[in-house]
Structure formats: structure tokens, C-alpha cells
């Protein structure tokens, strides 16, 4: 079976299984609601996951720990710029993307100019972003403009708008990775940085673009999440740090770099939401839910690695 050898298939199988098990309990009731919720919440995880995937593809040691801080900062500044004025949604989007550009460049500057390991550089920088967000937020809760909130919570042809955005982004990332020279360069860097440099790949430019991309994705996710949930909160990004890494790995992207997997990120994002709702509907408490989530993550990683070893 060719299909079974695709690295992304497992996250989708797991997502479908979790969906099926939940629906089995309710005997089919609420299936469309569950699917709708999974698409809405999975969209945010997918957007940050796509960014994290690009960085992890760069090779060992590359990771962005500033995703939650970038999300919060972008959402805070965007909502402040819009000030709940009608018709300012595009302005807010521009501000959010600008924040992403800024934090991405700052992260890369630390990594490149100061030769810091990306883990430490993005961690230290995220503390600064967090401070800026706290300072500019000051506990205010500004509502997003109504039209934007309607868009973020709305649907088109039965599909949540945020999911459409995330699917379009995923398609874009796939296109860039598979069909453009830039994507090939990125994969080459991840497979062997030295070889890529000797082959004439502009390695530093590729790394810079990747770190900017992850920050822009995080900012966009923050902007959408704040519009979706009716305002920015200082801890809004915190759960997306582990989430972004988890969806990348469950999705079948190699943690060693040089191989990314776009469809897997979406499958894993749906799975991460569905597994929690499955455990919820079976009446598991918060503690049991977390333990099982962890066990399932490790199980998938082990399954994926033994399959790799057999080939």
C-alpha cells in the first residue's frame, strides 16, 4: 500500500479514530458540531504548527520558543491599533503582520549576529516580547471590530472561516516547499547545512526567511485567535508552545530536519483537539486527560520510528 507509507497518514488515521470513538459514544449525534469545532480550533494549531514545521525543517537545534509571545504581542498591538473602530480590520492585520516581521527579524538577528543557539535566543527574546505586550496591554480588554469578530467566528459553506484561512496557508506552504527553489533550498539546508552552503545555497537568507515566516504565522494566529475569542489576553498563546511542536512531530515531520510534511500538520492539529474532546466525552478528568494525551503522543512517535526502522 503506497498510501500507508506516507508519513502523514498516521496523524489522519489517529484523528479519524478519535472522531469515530467520540461519535460512537453519542450514537452519531453532534457529529457535525464536533467536526466544526475541530476545524475551528485545529486551525489555530495548524497555523502555528506550519511555522514551527518550517523552522524544525532547518535542522537540529532550530526551534522557535517565542511563538506564544509573538502571538500575544501581535494580538495586543493589533487590537490596540484597531481600537474597536469599524472598518479597521485590514489595519489590524497589517499591524499584526508587521509585529511578526519585527519579532522574526529580531530573533534571527540574535541567532545570526550573536551566534546564540536558537532555543536560547528565541527564549530570551520571548521574555522581551512578553514585557512589551504587558506594557502596552495594561490589563485593557479591547474588543475586536464587529466585522472582524464576525469573520473570525463565521463560516462559509459550512466550514469555519479560520479553517479556510489555515487550509489556504497550508496549501501555500506546500506549494513553496515542493514547487519553488526557495523550498528546495530550505530542505537542502535541513539535510546538510554545510553541503548546502558549498552548493551555493544562500544559507543565511534561507534561515532568515524561515525565522521571519514562523513569527509572521504566529502573529497571524494571534490576530485571528484574539478576534475569535473577543479580545487579547496575556496568556492566550501559552498552550501553543507545546502544541506547535507536538503537531509538527505527530504530523510526521522529521525532528532531525530536512523533511517537512504539510498535510500531517493539519491531521495532527485536528487530532490534538479531537483526542481531548474524546477523553472529555468519555468522562475523563483533567488529570487523566493530560496523562492519556502524553501517552498517545509518545505512542505515535514510537510507532512512527519503528515503522521507519523497518523500511
Amino acid at each position: 500500500m503506497k498510501l500507508l507509507q506516507k508519513p502523514w497518514i498516521w496523524s489522519w488515521v489517529a484523528a479519524v479514530a478519535a472522531f469515530g470513538l467520540t461519535i460512537a459514544l453519542t450514537q452519531g449525534r453532534g457529529a457535525s458540531e464536533l467536526g466544526y469545532a475541530a476545524l475551528s480550533f485545529g486551525a489555530f494549531a495548524a497555523i502555528v504548527g506550519l511555522g514551527q514545521m518550517l523552522v524544525i525543517t532547518l535542522g537540529p537545534g532550530n526551534i522557535d520558543l517565542s511563538i506564544p509571545a509573538s502571538m500575544t504581542l501581535a494580538a495586543t498591538l493589533a487590537l490596540k491599533a484597531m481600537g474597536a473602530e469599524p472598518g479597521s480590520a485590514w489595519l489590524g492585520l497589517l499591524v499584526a503582520l508587521g509585529v511578526g516581521l519585527g519579532t522574526g527579524l529580531a530573533n534571527f538577528a540574535l541567532i545570526w549576529a550573536l551566534r546564540l543557539p536558537p532555543i536560547i535566543a528565541t527564549l530570551a527574546a520571548s521574555l522581551v516580547y512578553q514585557s512589551i505586550a504587558i506594557w502596552s496591554n495594561r490589563g485593557l480588554r479591547i474588543k475586536p471590530p464587529e466585522a472582524l469578530a464576525d469573520f473570525a467566528t463565521g463560516r462559509m459553506a459550512g466550514v469555519p472561516n479560520v479553517a479556510i484561512v489555515a487550509v489556504v496557508l497550508a496549501a501555500l506552504v506546500w506549494l513553496v516547499l515542493e514547487r519553488t527553489i526557495w523550498g528546495r533550498w530550505l530542505l537542502a539546508c535541513g539535510q546538510n547545512l554545510r553541503a548546502a552552503r558549498l552548493a551555493g545555497v544562500p544559507v543565511e537568507a534561507v534561515r532568515a526567511a524561515t525565522y521571519v515566516a514562523v513569527a509572521v504565522f504566529a502573529s497571524l494566529a494571534g490576530y485571528l485567535l484574539a478576534s475569535f475569542s473577543g479580545g487579547a489576553a496575556l496568556n492566550m498563546g501559552s498552550e501553543y508552545l507545546l502544541m506547535s511542536i507536538a503537531v509538527v512531530v505527530i504530523g510526521g515531520t522529521s525532528i532531525a530536519g530536512g523533511m517537512s510534511n504539510v498535510p500531517g500538520v493539519w491531521g495532527a492539529s485536528l487530532f490534538m483537539f479531537l483526542v481531548v474532546s474524546m477523553l472529555n466525552s468519555y468522562g475523563a478528568g483533567a488529570g487523566v486527560r493530560m496523562v492519556l494525551t502524553g501517552v498517545i503522543i509518545i505512542g505515535i512517535v514510537i510507532a512512527a520510528s519503528t515503522r521507519r526502522a523497518r523500511q
Binding site: 511542536i245 478528568g285 487523566v288 494525551t293 519503528t306
Partner: peptide
């Protein structure tokens, strides 16, 4: 033994530890 990425296994274990802690002391 299974040549797993430590970053992911420990990530998964962080959920396990956190869950048990929540179970012990809600």
C-alpha cells in the same frame, strides 16, 4: 534503544507528569 527524539518524548512526558500532578492535587 528506540532512537527517539528526546525533545518529543519529554514533551509527551510533560503531559503525563502534569496530568498525574493534577490528579494528586487538583
Amino acid at each position: 534503544m528506540l532512537d527517539l527524539p528526546a525533545i518529543v518524548v519529554t514533551l509527551g512526558m510533560s503531559f503525563v507528569w502534569g496530568g498525574i500532578a493534577l490528579f494528586l492535587l487538583p
